[in-house]
Design a protein around this nucleic acid. Structure first.
Lengths: 225, 225
DNA sequence: TTTTAAATATGATAATTGTCATGTTTTATC
DNA sequence: GATAAAACATGACAATTATCATATTTAAAA
């Protein structure tokens, strides 16, 4: 099992601000896990009792609406932490976390990290900055949801995934999502998402081979209104 | 000018976690301001250079969408801070702040408070908890925007204002909003907001006298789907 | 108070999006 | 590889919401 104090993944999140001693202590009680694609890490209402540090893979954070549809609120990739909000506010999770592909994660128990948060100002300030970033992002999503069309939102989602998570060697988006996932990000019916994607394809902005999507004309996609 | 160390407003925000010495220092350089209804405290893109502590009044935080419409993202009332996110991430504001009625605020310069944030773990932990609360709230709004109808969102907005900000002696909502404001909270056209409110009135769930709205049947309003 | 501007209200119509039905393709499992 | 299940796709139609036009009311200014 790898040691936190030597792990390079922490450079991408607030764990980098822990002291060497703190890291050694955490390393001793963390758990490494392999999580299969499709597995639910935790559900809405679950008491998480710690944070996950994502070493590899991608995960979606979603919330069930009263109408029975899932809304994807955030996607978490390698380097990021999951469960920070619940840790800080000492509440059960308000989101469900589901692995979108096979994942490697480390689980750090709450008991080992909460004291550091209250004692190490650099660490809590760092987490504060993380959360500030999330909050800004969430505000932007609210505005998009409220004011933009499904067509626009879907185009922006494709661009976001393309630019944030990159592409495979063949140019297809590296994050493989079902049409239902796209609908749940955009906040629309699955059929509507499928229809819009089909239209994008007809217009030559994307190409598809099964679930794999390739952006063919980024500029046109960016110009959609 | 009142002293921070004696001010009771700070009980409602993270400033309560500052030490007496820190408060005295901040008190010496803070500015008290009276802000007239309708005044823009700061605009999108402005460098705020500090935080506002709201001593009285209400303020809306909004963001201009590309289609030219304002989206109200949050309402801030007595006791809360404004500008925390920009302070923490050291960025210009991504939101516009506008007074919804006459306000009393104190402005604390960034230079006086940022060091405390990095040195006083209790203070930063407290602000972290504030931001965690905001983030949870924002996630809920995303889900509502994405999955609920205008009718539902408007009903929930009325209930939210009723329960969070209270009513005047005559039972009308204490926060006075224009129909356009309601539209900008819900994320719809002003005409649509007006239409839905008219329908609520016809159905006996609310009554109106000019801009003043009174909830007449909270249960029916809560049951809207 | 009169005048003017702004906010509220409502109708008509178009555009967007959701729902249900049904067929096709892809993927998983035996 | 055959079979079943899931995911994808598309048509038809209904519901929701936006837009434009135009009154009417309310608030503000002269």
């Amino acid at each position: 099992m790898s040691k936190c104090e030597q792990c390079i993944i922490k450079q991408f999140n607030s764990l980098k601000s822990l002291t060497k001693d703190e890291l050694i202590r955490i390393s001793a009680c963390k758990t490494s896990k392999t999580i299969k694609k499709g597995t639910i890490l935790f559900d809405e209402g679950d008491t998480i009792n710690g944070v996950y540090c994502v070493k590899d893979g991608i995960c979606k954070l979603s919330k069930l609406s009263e109408n029975g549809k899932d809304q994807i609120v955030k996607m978490v990739v390698k380097g990021q932490l999951i469960g920070q909000r619940s840790l800080v506010s000492d509440q059960s999770s308000n989101l469900q976390a589901t692995a979108l592909n096979d994942m490697e994660v480390c689980f750090i128990p709450k008991s080992e990290i909460i004291a550091d948060l209250q004692k190490n100002p650099k660490f809590s300030y760092d987490m504060l900055q993380d959360m500030a970033r999330d909050l800004k992002e969430a505000d932007n999503i609210i505005v998009n949801m409220a004011q933009k069309s499904v067509r626009q939102r879907l185009a922006e989602t494709l661009i976001y995934i393309h630019e944030s998570f990159g592409t495979n060697p063949d140019g297809t988006l590296s994050v493989l999502l079902s049409r239902e996932d796209f609908a749940n990000i955009v906040g629309t019916a699955t059929e509507s998402a499928i229809r819009v994607l089909s239209q994008f394809k007809k217009d030559g902005m994307i190409s598809t081979q099964g679930k794999h999507i390739k952006i063919e004309n980024l500029n046109d996609l960016k110009r959609i209104e």
